[in-house]
Design a protein around this nucleic acid. Structure first.
Length: 548
RNA sequence: GCCCCCAUCGUCUAGUGGCCUAGGACAUUCGGUUCUCAGCCGAAGAACAGGGGUUCGACUCCCCUUGGGGGUACCA
């Protein structure tokens, strides 16, 4: 019998944006499918059964983040939305009920909570088993307007499955079995039910998911047995943690901003109403968010609040894939780094192309210890990965960066200019660094703001030695035969030598005149890029503006 | 509380009983290169959580302790 092709899937719920943990899960599933090659497939499914928390916007952003990462799914034409499959789940649930394998249960959330509390008090663990309801009770519940849930009558026995990552059987004893909900009172299936049905319908063969699902697997295999489905291969991934050991989650952003809001209110004696006015966010929504640490705002709302309370985007912990894109990380570097959080190909391999990762990947080489997310190493990966990518790809990534940084003047740059800027900032850590170091090229010549410290240190010091150099240089540059890097370097160096100055004593004044500050791409590249005319205008303006 | 998973330098990891006086990368410190910032080059310090076994021999296998993470929902 030929073995079925490997089919993996990523099944996020669109309740927030893609974060690093989800991205790593997606990556491993994608790598597994790509490693196998066609006809193996990587499928995407949107688990939007939680009507209250799922949003279209989150879903769109999720897809965009996945595309940015380059984790293309194979069911582009037939993306699965669980919310659209209710009729399928219902038919199966009704059949289960008809066969006596599932039943309606009537307890309210409050009653269940009380039951759990009582069990806890009695130091027992709460286990839900099928109760018996008299017809009168049921009539009463209906009269009260209660809506029943459907619970699966989980056969009481020992369950076990082989976890590929743990490389052993994970076992649940019979006494821990309980009848879990498969259809909620609102008529939607629970995660447990939908995931089992959909994985079977999509012929998923390998389930790589977060460790939080390990114990859920017992519920899933019980359902598979009742439904006659094949059991996929399971592997549960460890958690990605913050440097302090806490779980790295999307709430970390809200936490940071919430703190800043508290401080802002305290220090400026302003109110949440002021914040609402300043950010354009509904005051009631803000109040709820500030008071409830479990709630989250959208990134657009974060962006609206941050300037009001004096936070910059670089102050926020990068948690969401979107953050990394916005801050100038390269997808290939992020992927490489994420893959190495738990997986290692051995032989001291670290920096790999996506193709190499695909070739070397194997689930067996993933370890199942938690990993802390080390941004410093990611930064180093970003630099090293950039060195390996072709210029045209870097320009493409730069464009994607600029698309989410509309304020950057570099959005006006041509492809050729972007390529040049990237090349002259070779060795950059992030694309944001390229951006920020290059902005002065794209602002008007008369809009250069001179950094007072730079002016003092570079231009005025030693009786205006820097200004003198600029004054001397202007005619030399005006007369320079060729406005190219090498020729400019020769001209400037000749001047420096003639005056017995180090290159720095000449380059720094030029740098301040052109950019307003002491940091820029290499000076001769900068001169060439700016062009003769604008360079001379800027030197002239600097000399006219700054006096010794 | 109960259940599950995990445990090598600060961090990510290599290591599947002798190749280990434990290797690599990032970070750190020191030195070099340079027109600034980066980068690059060189060097150094830095780990097998603790305790019992098993074995001629344990980082590697078993048990306990400790520590960390996850779960314990009509959320996924």
């Amino acid at each position: 019998m030929p073995t079925a092709p490997v089919i993996t899937r990523f099944a996020p719920s669109p309740t927030g944006y893609l974060h690093v943990g989800g991205a790593r899960t997606a990556l491993f599933n994608w790598l597994l499918a790509r490693h196998e090659g066609a006809p193996a497939q990587f499928l995407l499914r949107i688990e939007d059964t939680d009507l209250a928390r799922s949003t279209q916007q989150a879903c769109d952003q999720l897809l965009e983040d996945l595309r940015w990462l380059g984790l293309q799914w194979d069911n582009t034409d037939s993306l699965v939305f669980q919310s659209k499959r209710q009729h399928i789940y219902n038919a199966i649930i009704d059949d289960l009920v008809a066969r006596g394998l599932a039943y309606e249960a009537w307890e309210s959330a409050e009653e269940l909570a009380a039951l759990r509390q009582a069990a806890e008090k009695a130091k027992r663990s709460f286990v839900y088993r099928r109760p018996t309801y008299s017809p009168e009770e049921i009539n009463t519940y209906k009269a009260q307007g209660r809506r029943p849930v459907v619970r699966f009558a989980m056969p009481v026995k020992e369950y076990r499955f082989f976890d590929v990552l743990a490389a052993k059987d994970i076992v649940q004893p019979a006494e821990e079995c309980q009848d879990f909900v498969i259809r909620k009172a609102d008529g939607m299936p629970t995660y447990h039910f939908a995931v089992v049905v959909d994985d079977a319908h999509m012929n998923v063969t390998h389930v790589l998911r977060g460790q939080e699902h390990t114990k859920n697997t017992f519920l899933h295999i019980a359902l598979q047995e009742a439904l006659g489905y094949a059991r996929p291969t399971y592997a549960h991934l460890s958690t990605i943690q913050n440097p302090d050991g806490s779980k790295m989650g999307k709430r970390d952003r809200d936490k940071k901003i919430r703190e800043a809001v508290h401080n802002w209110v305290k220090n400026t004696k302003k109110t949440l109403d002021d914040l609402a006015a300043g950010s354009g966010i509904d005051a009631a929504r803000l109040t709820k968010w500030v008071g409830d640490s479990k709630t989250q705002l959208d990134p657009t709302e974060h962006d609206a609040i941050m300037p009001v309370v004096g936070l910059k985007s670089s102050d926020l912990p990068e948690i969401l894939i979107h953050d990394f894109r916005k801050n100038g990380y390269i997808p290939e570097a992020l992927l490489n780094f994420l893959a190495l959080l738990g997986w290692s190909p051995g032989e001291n391999r670290e920096i790999m192309s996506v193709e190499e990762m695909i070739k070397l990947f194997s689930v067996e080489r993933i370890n199942n210890a938690n990993a802390k997310f080390d941004r410093a190493k990611l930064l180093a990966f970003n630099t090293q990965t950039a060195e390996t990518l072709p210029p045209v790809r870097l320009v493409g990534v730069m464009r994607q960066y600029l698309a989410v940084n509309p304020d950057s003047p570099l959005n006006a740059a041509t492809e050729e200019q972007l390529a040049e800027l990237i090349a002259m900032k070779k060795g950059f850590r992030t694309l944001r660094e390229v951006d920020e170091a290059s902005r002065f090229f794209f602002v008007a010549d008369d809009a250069i703001a001179y950094d007072p410290k730079a002016v003092e240190k570079v231009l005025r010091k030693d009786n205006g030695a820097g200004l003198t150099a600029l004054r001397d240089l202007a005619p030399l540059l005006t007369g320079a035969a060729e406005w190219k890097h090498d020729a400019l370097e020769a001209t400037v160096k000749a001047y420096a030598e003639a005056k017995g100055l180090g290159l720095g004593a000449v380059a720094q004044p030029l740098r301040v005149a052109l950019s307003g500050g002491t940091v820029s791409p290499p000076i001769f590249n900068s001169l060439e890029f700016l062009g003769r005319e604008r360079t001379l205008v800027r030197i002239g303006r600097c000399l006219a503006t700054i006096t010794a």
